[in-house]
Design a protein around this nucleic acid. Structure first.
Lengths: 198, 198
DNA sequence: TAACTTTGCTTAACGGTGTTAAATTATTTA
DNA sequence: TAAATAATTTAACACCGTTAAGCAAAGTTA
């Protein structure tokens, strides 16, 4: 009954093929244009057979993100093991996280639910720039004159924006929802950055 | 020829109705289930009529985000004008930004492209928790024993995650792409938080 | 070997999406 | 009133996720 094994192996293989094809499409065209029919085309089957391997499209995305987390964890471990000092290790791990996100952009987008809503952001209309301009101007005002270079302002601006937007995103996608911790993180970060500028 | 004016006024009104209906649907069912036919239903027309007011669905989302930015700017101005000290003003503005995001969750999601990919995040499988556990453990290690409470670790963890994920999101949705600034922000923030823990 | 059953896969279909072209109805103009 | 124009709808296209029915090959049993 070795034929059973062969068939099982084949089934496992097409399961893999489905995931590989999906990831290819995601990498080539972005995860929002991933469709069951495109996957089927790529593995040279018709769409319905995918449902013998995955309950639905979400299940495929789910498995892709799971695999993404595994890969991320591996890269972070590698980075960690290059150092012995805990602080250095921590920094290396965050850098690995960072690097992963950019090496696997679309995967990261699927994993953390980041996506542009529609159009190009390039020639953003003035209304879209108003809030950032306001913040920018105020940051400029807080920074003492002797430090006030374009790059320094830019750095502080993005540090601010990152921590706030990041915490918001986490709360919106995840349902973390511990208001106490959130407020503490937010105030810690904001006052910290402000003090660092003075 | 006052009838021309009346017609123009009516046209402007249905344009408004389209946007209002869209925002209602977005608030009720989330922006991913916004459809041209649903909008048409709500304004008691058929779908093709919408194309006389907006080029396509993206144009509607675009206008909604533009209006969102206007609203955000107004709330930030209000917050700013309650203080005179620049540092206090800056903090108030960031808090206004924060409050806006949670008062207008779905609008913020459209504006900044934040969305869950598919399923519930609640009972996340272990693979999904591995990276965060690794970071959590290392943070715990870096924090001196006398400060090492659950809440303190949690705060630091989310501060880290927020700033990194936030900066990543900004880079992925936007195409900011100034590697120099990015690296500076990242290292500034990370080493800053690390030092604050010691 | 012949009949029956299971398996693997496809075709067809449902209800949904954004979008466009043609047809129809209503309104204005001559 | 008749012609022209505008407003609106119907119908259609091509896509989407998903399911049910059908078919053909393979395996199993008599």
């Amino acid at each position: 009954m070795a034929s059973k094994d062969r068939i099982l192996r084949l089934k496992e293989e097409t399961r893999c093929n489905i995931l590989e094809a999906s990831l290819d499409i995601v990498k080539e065209e972005g995860w929002q244009s991933l469709s069951m029919r495109k996957i089927a085309d790529k593995i040279e089957y018709t769409a319905p057979i995918i449902y013998e391997y995955f309950a639905n499209k979400d299940a495929i995305l789910n498995e892709l993100t799971r695999m993404g987390y595994v890969k991320l964890a591996r890269q972070m471990e590698e980075a960690r093991d290059k150092f012995t000092d805990p602080a250095e290790q921590l920094e290396a791990m965050w850098l690995a996280y960072w690097n992963f996100a950019f090496a696997e952009k679309d995967l990261y987008k699927v994993m953390y639910g980041v996506e542009v809503n529609c159009c190009v952001f390039e020639n953003a209309c003035p209304d879209m720039k108003a809030p950032s301009n306001m913040l920018w101007d105020k940051i400029e005002e807080v920074i003492p004159e002797d430090k006030r270079t374009e790059d320094y302002i830019c750095t502080k601006y993005y540090t601010f924006w990152s921590v706030v937007h990041g915490l918001i995103s986490i709360n919106l996608t995840n349902q973390h929802r511990s208001d106490e911790i959130n407020k503490q993180v937010l105030r810690d970060a904001i006052t910290g950055i402000i003090n660092s500028m003075k």
